[in-house]
Write a protein that binds this DNA or RNA. Structure first.
Lengths: 346, 346
DNA sequence: GAACTTCGTCGAAGCGTTTCGACGAAGCGG
DNA sequence: CCGCTTCGTCGAAACGCTTCGACGAAGTTC
């Protein structure tokens, strides 16, 4: 391993000159710069990340903290990651993913206080998220993907759930549906303060009420069985339902299975819209799902850009931004069969 | 941020003594140790990772290199990751995931030569994988999850595809199936030298031939549409098929949809077995899929253990190990309907 | 052309650890 | 009780880089 010393000797300049060539913090004449670059190439020199980090007190490493639960990363989360990695690379940072789950807060504290991360992007943020506190105490700059309850002081990027739900409901209502059931995440998830579940619940209520319709929400476990149970519950609460809006990407497969099992056809008997879903998953189902497509890679990119701007720039500005999901119509929605659009009060 | 200096001063010992307390490389009396620990607690001291890395020439960071393509991480890959992270934590290492895709080999080279990673676990290894060369040139110890073509010199953990396919085929043959079609990954994937696809192909041929049956393999694109096309191709090549064995986790949903679309019931008309699948995904389908469950977290754990043993231990031993997937019978397999088990030649 | 800047380079002082050699104090066999 | 190890501690030298102050040389300003 060649060091800066070796490069300096070969190029017949001082060590500091080599450093300035590398970092560009002071002007260097073209002639010397070339000499140095040639020496670096000849020695196949690579700066030592540790030494650089120690001396400059910045690691040029950004962390993406993603709790990994059993059910894996959806294509949505993957898109976050790839978007973020690309943006980090552009800004001259490395991005590392840390699978620190909810449990090991100590692990996170250690990571944060060891000054190994210049900044952090938090995924899957809870309304009351202890990780935020830990990182703030450790003085690590952070950007959220998602939002805590109190959004006033932090930088975040999040999905505009309000707008997304409104668009989804509007699509169904526009087709003539009146009895629409919303299948959310589980009651436990709601109780734990999971933002997306809460926000979509409220948005759904508001949106349906705005159309003069009655909002019916079912909480479903994140599993196919949970989806089946949810559909049964839905029919119990709203026997005449003609459309299902589902936030729960896992349960939706159970919903589809149960619908088929009951001899009901999608979309002719019941329309189905999947929320915050990637095209890949939407295409898995038969028929392919009409879905609200999440702006995955854009979220990741914007989060990293906000973070690097904060780190490199002088200003310590907050960045807060919401992005809606885009409606992509596939085969799972249509006008309700029996009842034609009964142009009620619009 | 408190430094070792501060701790040393407060505890009234020398800096080196504090270091020895921390690293345990030299004996320290209980009395001094306690003084030092008290001082560290009082100052909320955390060692600086960069300084430590520079001085000791080891970062205590392990990399898990996972190419992230669009379709996301399955539960299987996620299990790798969680298993690996847990094992790393036990061994006193941090695990970071690096989403270095196939394209950015330079990125990998930089990461490797910057001495930021003590060792690396490679996921999704190709038969001829350039990343291996890059890392070996950079002198970074590595362990593969998967195998390259020439397995003689490297450490690896992999699924025992041979055994797994044999078990899956045996299950179907035991139920009375004779016409079994194997749905593999795409032709392009096969051509690119993706080990699992190639190995299962060969194992399937061997296994079927061993039972005196004719092996029929179809290559399917990784999508629901690919699965549908594959099923059509399968019926064209083997009209009397009664069972499908599928390696392609994505295509299998298309296969199921197409089967239902043709008015065929699973498992009564056609049995379906999914290879290298997590329970979570198997349960998504209706009916739930009989599947070969991958030993995900064990693979991750074993890989990290092999790596840390190599790093910490003196011996530089190779670790090579194969783990089979376990057959989990769910609702998608049964004896073939029309043809009763025709006890041919066994 | 004297008094200032700006440019390009150098030497040296850190950054916060680990680790090596040294050394007094015990413990021990003969 | 004399040399020997072993134990517990210290001081100082790395580790490979960044960054600060300094300083000639050259360019500007009046």
């Amino acid at each position: 391993m060649a060091t800066m010393h070796d490069v300096a000797r070969l190029a017949q300049v001082s060590v500091s000159t080599v450093s300035y060539v590398l970092t560009g913090t002071r002007p260097i004449s073209q002639a010397t710069r070339n000499k140095v670059l040639a020496a670096m190439a000849q020695l196949d020199y690579q700066p030592n990340a540790m030494a650089r980090g120690l001396a400059s007190r910045r690691s040029r490493i950004l962390g993406l903290l993603m709790p990994m639960d059993e059910r894996g990363l959806g294509a949505t989360e993957t898109a976050f990651v790839t978007g973020a990695a690309a943006a980090a690379s552009v800004a001259g940072y490395h991005l590392v993913l840390s699978p620190v789950g909810g449990g090991n807060l100590d692990d996170l504290r250690r990571l944060a206080s060891q000054r190994m991360l210049d900044g952090v992007v938090l995924m899957e943020v809870q309304l009351a998220d202890e990780r935020v506190t830990v990182l703030q105490e450790a003085g690590v700059p952070l950007v959220l993907i998602g939002r805590t309850g109190d959004t006033s002081t932090l930088s975040y990027v999040d999905i505009d759930f309000d707008q997304t739900v409104r668009d989804a409901v509007a699509h169904l209502v526009g087709l003539g549906h009146r009895r629409i059931v919303y299948v959310n995440h589980s009651a436990a998830t709601l109780a734990s303060g999971y933002g997306p579940a809460l926000r979509t619940r409220d948005a759904f209520t508001a949106s349906m009420t705005g159309h003069g319709l009655e909002p019916v929400m079912i909480a479903a476990e994140d599993s196919a069985a949970g989806g089946r149970a949810a559909l049964a519950a839905a029919f119990a609460q709203a026997p005449e339902l003609t459309a299902v809006l589902a936030m729960n990407e896992t349960a939706i497969f159970g919903i589809l299975g149960e619908l088929t099992g009951r001899g009901l056809s999608v979309p002719d008997d019941v329309s189905v819209v999947s929320m915050v879903t990637s095209p890949q998953v939407a295409e898995l189902a038969t028929p392919a799902l009409t879905a609200m497509t999440s702006p995955g890679s854009a979220l990741g990119r914007i989060a990293i850009e906000a973070l690097t701007r904060h780190l490199d720039g002088p200003a310590d500005l907050r960045h807060q931004q919401l992005l809606p999901c885009a409606l992509e119509i596939r085969g799972s929605t249509a006008a309700p069969r029996s009842r034609q659009p009964m142009g009620a009060d619009q």
